[in-house]
Amino acid sequence: KAKLLVLLYAFVATDADTICIGYHANNSTDTVDTILEKNVAVTHSVNLLEDSHNGKLCKLKGIAPLQLGKCNITGWLLGNPECDSLLPARSWSYIVETPNSENGACYPGDLIDYEELREQLSSVSSLERFEIFPKESSWPNHTFNGVTVSCSHRGKSSFYRNLLWLTKKGDSYPKLTNSYVNNKGKEVLVLWGVHHPSSSDEQQSLYSNGNAYVSVASSNYNRRFTPEIAARPKVRDQHGRMNYYWTLLEPGDTIIFEATGNLIAPWYAFALSRGFESGIITSNASMHECNTKCQTPQGAINSNLPFQNIHPVTIGECPKYVRSTKLRMVTGLRNIPSIQYRGLFGAIAGFIEGGWTGMIDGWYGYHHQNEQGSGYAADQKSTQNAINGITNKVNSVIEKMNTQFTAVGKEFNNLEKRMENLNKKVDDGFLDIWTYNAELLVLLENERTLDFHDLNVKNLYEKVKSQLKNNAKEIGNGCFEFYHKCDNECMESVRNGTYDYPKYSEESKLNR
């Protein structure tokens, strides 16, 4: 008799109507990190870190770059004969040098303040090359056809396309004075040089004057150069050297050249137009028929994500570079809930034993079982409120962090190594801060989002509990077992918050 009662009780308990509160689960393989956990499985997430590029040089917003090819900045601007293909260059979106560009200054020497000139050019998007001192009329008392084997072109001695090597005419090199007034309405880049012979005999042979000088002056520039005559090792078949100089001439300003020898005179100059998204990159990537809004030396990035880990040097509207390998923000729920887990921000989770793959029309909802059958029903209101809140948060985070910009490298010469090392340390410090901030932001927001979901499920549970009161009992896994019969209409009233407690209280009292 006792065995019969136990079996009867078990049958009745199993047959009781139930309603459970749960949440969506799926077959997603997404994982995120939080402050407290690593690799948390979630139903949905968004990636904030771009880690792919196309490996190509592309047009930037429809404008092609200027590819210097086998030449570098120095060779292009001075007019190395091997860089003749660059003479027609007028406009570009950015400038590309190759790491091993070999054609710079063909006659050995240095372009002074080269690093600063590169910085200036990094904001130039177009130029006009014009004859600042016409070759045939500007130097009537001097020979202007100086050439050298060091600047050979097609097997013949030649010289820079933008400079003139002035030497004596006959047996004399009379003092020369020439000036140019900038009437271009924009900055003009003027380049010139000073020749330093290897011996007094060479000085006399070329310029006749043993104590020659070169003077260059404008409103913002004033220097006097004296040739340094000295024996030097042979470089590119030359014992002599040429140093090259430049200045930016403001609109309306005048530049005056005065010399008694050794002047490498300007022939062509450049009127410059600035462009905020221009820059110089060093890259071996090849040019393709493609378009982008962000270019790196590795390749083009076409992404609206706020961060990238491809390269710190970028041109155009680019994500911020960070050292992170993963920045994924959760938008959905835990896919593998932890039992009795309390989140960092106070939300209680884990009283549900598992997510439901059968509930596909919402994030949170119900599963019921009664004599009429069983089924899932999503709670659309709480789901939609959660979707709206999380979507707004993700968009806000992306908008705040998605300050796209150009980031170019800084140039230092060989004598500025300590400054370069200090600059690298400062840049590394800023990069570490950006990386830390980005990672911390994602970790915190992921923790908040998961706790937010847990709290929403808990609130749904409490909503049902407050309606049923003692007409049902909690069975410990997020479910309630009714003390009365609850048909589909009754189940719907529980879900929509209109459950009639008094209607079922007498039946429940008897069954309790």
Rank of each mutant, 00 (worst) to 15 (best):
F130T: 07
K38F: 02
Q238I: 08
L191W: 06
S93T: 02
V181D: 10
G75E: 10
D110P: 14
L164F: 15
V42G: 09
F276S: 12
H44Q: 12
L78T: 10
V181Y: 11
G210K: 11
S200M: 09
S126A: 12
E119L: 03
E37A: 13
L60N: 08
S158P: 00
P81E: 11
A269K: 01
W139P: 00
D30E: 13
L66T: 11
S219V: 07
D113M: 10
K3Y: 10
T18R: 12
P174M: 14
I95V: 15
Y23V: 13
T148R: 02
A271L: 13
V42M: 12
V194P: 03
N72M: 13
T43H: 06
V149S: 15
A230H: 13
N145G: 13
E202A: 12
R223G: 14
K70D: 01
T34Y: 07
P227M: 05
G75K: 10
Y23P: 00
K186E: 09
K186S: 12
Y173A: 01
C20S: 08
P140V: 10
R232Q: 06
L249V: 15
T31Q: 06
S45R: 01
G55F: 06
Y221M: 14
H24E: 00
Q238S: 05
L8G: 15
L57N: 12
P251K: 03
N26R: 13
T29R: 04
S199T: 13
A231P: 12
L111W: 14
K175M: 13
L68F: 04
N211G: 11
T247L: 11
G22R: 06
N47C: 03
F225Y: 13
S157V: 06
L111E: 00
L163I: 15
S157G: 00
N100H: 05
G252A: 09
L60W: 02
N162R: 00
S28P: 00
S158R: 02
F159K: 04
D171Q: 10
N103L: 11
N243C: 04
W192L: 01
L48P: 13
N27H: 03
G79V: 07
L68Y: 03
P134Q: 12
E119Q: 07
K1L: 14
R118T: 13
L127G: 06
S150W: 02
F130V: 12
E187N: 07
K175G: 09
S122V: 09
P233T: 06
G240V: 03
R224A: 09
F276A: 13
V42L: 00
K168D: 00
E97H: 03
D30N: 10
L86N: 02
L4N: 08
N211P: 12
L36H: 00
W192C: 01
K234L: 15
S179G: 11
H53E: 05
R223Q: 11
D17L: 02
I63R: 15
S126K: 14
N162L: 00
D171H: 08
F257N: 00
V40D: 05
S126Q: 15
N183H: 05
E97Y: 05
P88A: 11
E37K: 06
G69E: 12
T29S: 12
